[in-house]
Structure formats: C-alpha cells, structure tokens
Design a protein around this nucleic acid. Structure first.
Length: 577
DNA sequence: GCGCTGACTTAGCACAACTTGA
DNA sequence: TCAAGTTGTGCTAAGTCAGCGC
C-alpha cells in the first residue's frame, strides 16, 4: 500500500529528484529481484540513417585517368572511401584490401570487370566535394543553423525519449549507425570492410505488450517485435563485421542505468571490507603446491596492484591482438632480478583494450618474481604466461571469496579508494578554489594513471601551451608594474588602498594562470574523463565538494551531473567510500 | 569444463558547440 | 564580431561476464 502511494507521487512528479531517489531504492530493494527490468516500456523505435543521395553529375570519379560513371551502389561505397582520403587509414594495406574486396561486391559486373586496381582509382573530386560541403555547412547563416538545431531538437523530442515504468527517460543512441567503412582500433584485421546499411527488416523491437508499438517506415517491416522485460534494450540489430548484436539503450541519467551504477559502487565498497582477507589469501596462494593456484594468485595480485583488466581470450585473426591479465603472454613481460637499484622488477609491455600500450616497470615481492620465472620456464614468447588460468576460472574463484566479486570490481575499488586517499592527502580547506581544483584534478590524474587511461596529445597542445605561457609572462609584467605603482603611492591612503587591491587581483589572476598551465602540462597524455565517468564513486566527489565549499559544477559538467544525480542527492559531506 | 552468445559496461576519438580575447 | 582555442557530446568499438547447451 505504502509502495503504491509512493508510485503515485512519482508519477505526479517524475523529475523531482528526491522522489525519483525513493523509487530508485524501492526498485533495487523490492521490485526487481527476479531479473525483471521493467513492467512497462513504450518508445517510437529507431531513427534510420538518411538514404544515399547520389553525387551531382559534375563530381566525377576517374579510373586509370578516365572518367567513369558509377552505379549508385558502387558510388555510395566509393564516397565512404573518398570521405576518409585524408586519413592515415586509407594508406594501410589491410584497410585498402578489405575495402576493395567489399567495394567490388557492390559493383555491377561491368564495373567489376573494369575496376581491378584500387591504385588506379581517383577519388579526389569526391573528396573535394565533401570538403566543400563541410565548409558550406560551417559558414551557414545564423538562421539556417538555428533551423537545423530546431529540427534536431524536434527529432530528439520525438524519438529521444521513452516511457519506462512511469518515468519518461532519455534514450542514449536512438539513431541507427549509418553505413560506412569499419574503422577498428590498432591493427585490426577487418579495418576498411563495408559496414552495411541497416534496414527496418534487420531491427528487433523490444517493448511491452500493452504499449503503443513503434511503427516501421511506410511499406516496411520490423524483423521482430518482442516483449522481453528481462533486458533493458529497446532496439537491437546484428552488425555485419563481427556478427555481434548492437543495441539502443537508455541514457546514463535513466533510473535503470543509475541504479546499476550505484550497485557497482556498493559492490566495490563491500570489497573494501574484505580486501585485506583476500590479499592475505592470495599471498598464501603464492606458495601453493598447485600450479593453477599459484597462477591464479599471481594474476590476482596484478589485477589488484596494477588495476589490470581481466583479459578474456579473443578469437585470433578476428580482432586486434590485445591482452589483459589472464591472456598475458611470455613476450609481454621481462624479469629483472635487479634494475636501477631495485630488486625483482617486472617490466610490462603490451597492448591493452583499444590497443592502448601498457608500459610499466614495477618491483614485486620475491615470491611473485620466483613464480613468474617458474611460469615462463620452457615456454616460447607467444605462449600464455598463465597457461592454467582464464577469466572464467578466476571469476569463479572471486565469486567464492565475496558475493558479486569479479576481476573488474578491483579496478573500481582501487580507483575509488585512490581518489579518496589522494583527495585527503592533497587538499587543504584553507586553499583557494583554483588550488583545490588543481588538487582534485591531480587526484583524478593519479587514478587515470593507475587505470592507464591515455589519450593522444591534442593536436594543438604545443601551441596552446605557448599561448598560456605568453599570458603568464604578460601577467607577470603587469604585476611588476602594479608593485611599482603601489610603492610610489605612499602619501594618499585611498590611492594606496586601490593599488593594493589591484596588486592582489593581479596576483590572483597570475596564480590562476600558473595553476592552469601546470594542470594542462600534467594532463598532456592522460584522459581524466574515463575514470571520472566509470570508476570513481561520484559520492566521493560530491562529499569533497561539500566539505571544501566547491560548487559541484566545477567538477561535473551538465551531462555528468545528470548521470550522477543519484549521488548528488545522496551523499553528505561525511560520506566515506 | 568448454565454447559460444547475449547483454551490458568501458573506451578513445572526431567533431560540434561554446567561450574567449583581439 | 570573428577566429582561435577549449570543452562537451555523440559515436561506436572493444571490453567484461553470466548463462546456456553440450
């Protein structure tokens, strides 16, 4: 009864934070213990990519120096390549090979017999045409830009929301991925392949029986309409490169995602309570008689100490050659009994998720070192380091140690606890706001380094650094002037006061610039966003802001505040992870 | 156990949108 | 007011992990 009453309140005012927080707790504790994710789900279905518009006749394609009119299908695929002409991708052999193979499939038999060598294809007119179009888009008038904006807004309002259990929720990706050329990361064997256009007939709709079902475009059909309330997705289709399923799901601000996120951090907090026991256990296991247990224990030590990912097996030749902890190979580590004055050093060098390089030299305990020597005995470089271990074995073991424990919980736990410790260590209530924020970013950075969240240095980095330095120099000159003026303004008390406050103001500005420069330099190759969004319990940041008198807007932008609304609502100043 | 698949989270990059200072 | 620089958002690839059938 009480529950029912609450729901009514929620329906009446779905956007009221306090109330949605209640529904949140109810949902987690009472409503969905049986894998049911919702009772009611209604939406408008996906937005398809716009149909292909053939090129104007003056934009020509040349083969072997001669103009050649392509069939619409072949032309469309050619434009995908033309649009990427300036990208390094198009110079890579695999990319070109894959593209050409798939392009030929789209050609008429006549085209296929003529076009036999990609090197003889000239796409430059197409490429120039698209560049001109992009330029034209940029230089549109204010009114035109506003019109586009309004149209986008209209689409968002129509397709960007759904109703799930009495809440109107934002959908994350309501637009179907347009066709194009597949761009894998790193050395992907499938780069350049044609990602085909998705049609209504490829689409599975998921919604509740008693909802208004989404309508396919006129004269078309959905592949299937199902009513599976044990899953959270609204739309799915099978992608043609890997044959995997893609989904349309809800925005991170939605109840269903927020709840899950909250749960994730609660699991990490439970790990905090038993991590000492687990650490003692794996240290004991280093001595085990059984090889499989020693391997498990050393791997777990790496996952815990270095925040490595679990490392599932991957199908060879289907994806880029990347590894995580359990899939490390002998060639990925080097052992140094002594290195730079430290004993038992392990050097890691491998490509992880997204082909981001993990390079680290770490001193380890002697037992770990000896075990690693043992694991590597009589093995080839491309043999598995942990040949008696995989993620499934590891996670089964972890499950026995703590309910809900898996390898990735260690990343969440270590990231969040590091942030909390670093914030305690680095920040001082006495400092001013820019200094506090620099400290926050430094704490955030410690986590990003731990998790190896890298980014390519921004293209404009050097220049923007230089600009900042110029500003700092100018500000220093200004400060020197102000100091001189203050000195010479001895007699008049009022003038003195004014000069003093001016000097103070300039000092503040200078400090702010210097802090900004430090922050930016330290951030050159480190991405803070990923850890902020996925690994750091937002309640730690909310509590810190409250304690330090920092407005939450300084730490989280609008999107982030929406995602972490539950935490902003929940966490008090004394929150402890 | 073992391989496979589906569902869901995590990830970096490209580009659009906004901000700032000349 | 505009270009340059900076930040935010969208996109979609690439992971993790549970569950299933054998």
């Amino acid at each position: 009864m009480k529950k029912l009453k609450l729901y009514c309140v929620i329906i009446g005012n779905a956007l009221n934070r306090r109330q949605s927080l209640f529904s949140f707790i109810i949902a987690t504790k009472e409503r969905y213990t049986d894998g049911v994710k919702w009772k009611f789900l209604e939406h408008k279905g996906p937005v398809f990519a716009p149909p292909y518009e053939p090129l104007p006749s003056n934009v020509k394609f040349y083969y072997d120096g001669k103009h050649m009119k392509l069939s619409p299908q072949a032309e469309e695929v050619a434009t995908f390549f033309a649009k990427m002409l300036d990208h390094e991708y198009t110079t890579k052999d695999i990319f070109r090979k894959n593209f050409f193979k798939d392009w030929k499939k789209e050609m008429t038999s006549e085209e296929r017999s003529k076009i036999t060598d990609l090197k003889k294809c000239n796409f430059t007119e197409m490429s120039d045409y698209f560049k001109a179009q992009a330029e034209a888009r940029k230089s549109k008038t204010k009114e035109d830009k506003l019109k586009i904006k309004e149209e986008n807004e209209r689409m968002l309002q129509e397709y960007g929301f759904c109703v799930m259990d009495n809440h109107k929720e934002r959908i994350a990706n309501f637009r179907i991925e347009p066709p194009g050329l597949f761009r894998g990361r790193g050395d992907h064997p499938k780069m350049g392949m044609l990602k085909r256009r998705i049609r209504p007939e490829d689409i599975i709709i998921n919604c509740s029986k008693d909802s208004k079902h989404p309508v396919p475009p006129p004269g078309r059909k959905w592949k299937e309409v199902r009513h599976d309330n044990k899953v959270t997705w609204l739309v799915s289709w099978t992608e043609n490169i890997q044959g995997s399923i893609k989904y349309i799901m809800l925005n991170p601000s939605s109840r269903i995602k927020g709840e899950k996120d909250w749960q994730k951090y609660e699991t990490a907090r439970r790990l905090k309570k038993c991590v000492d026991r687990i650490r003692n256990q794996y240290r004991e296991d280093w001595k085990s008689k059984e090889m499989r247990i020693r391997q498990r224990a050393v791997a777990l030590y790496f996952i815990d100490k270095l925040a490595l990912r679990a490392g599932n097996e991957k199908e060879e030749g289907e994806t880029a050659d990347t590894v995580g902890c359990c899939s490390l190979r002998v060639e990925h580590i080097k052992l140094y009994p002594e290195n730079d004055g430290q004993e038992f050093v392990v050097e890691f060098d491998f490509l992880g998720k997204d082909s981001i390089r993990y390079y680290n030299k770490v001193p380890v305990e002697k037992r770990v070192f000896k075990n690693l020597q043992l694991f590597m005995e009589n093995k080839e470089p491309d043999d598995d380091l942990f040949d008696r271990l995989n993620t499934s074995i590891l996670n089964k073991h972890l499950q026995e140690l703590m309910d809900g424990l898996t390898a990735k919980v260690f990343r969440t736990y270590n990231a969040s606890i590091t942030l909390q410790q670093q914030l305690k260590e680095l920040t001082n209530v006495e400092e001013n706001i820019p200094a506090k924020i620099l400290s926050y970013n430094r704490a955030n950075r410690a986590v990003a380094i731990l998790c190896n969240h890298q980014r390519a240095p921004p293209k404009t980095f050097e220049k923007s650094m230089q600009n900042l330095q110029t500003k700092i120099d100018a500000k220093r000159d200004q400060l020197a002037d102000a100091k001189r003026e203050l000195k010479s303004a001895k007699a008049d008390a009022k003038v003195r006061r004014d000069e003093k406050s001016k000097k103070y103001r300039i000092e503040e500005q200078l400090m702010k610039l210097e802090v900004q420069a430090t922050d930016r330099e330290e951030n050159k190759q480190i991405a803070l966003g990923t850890s902020k969004l996925n690994y750091l319990d937002p309640r730690i940041s909310v509590a810190w802001c409250k304690k330090m008198g920092i407005p939450i807007e300084k730490i989280y932008n609008k999107t982030q505040r929406e995602k972490f609304a539950w935490a902003i609502d929940m966490a008090e100043e004394d929150y402890e992870f």
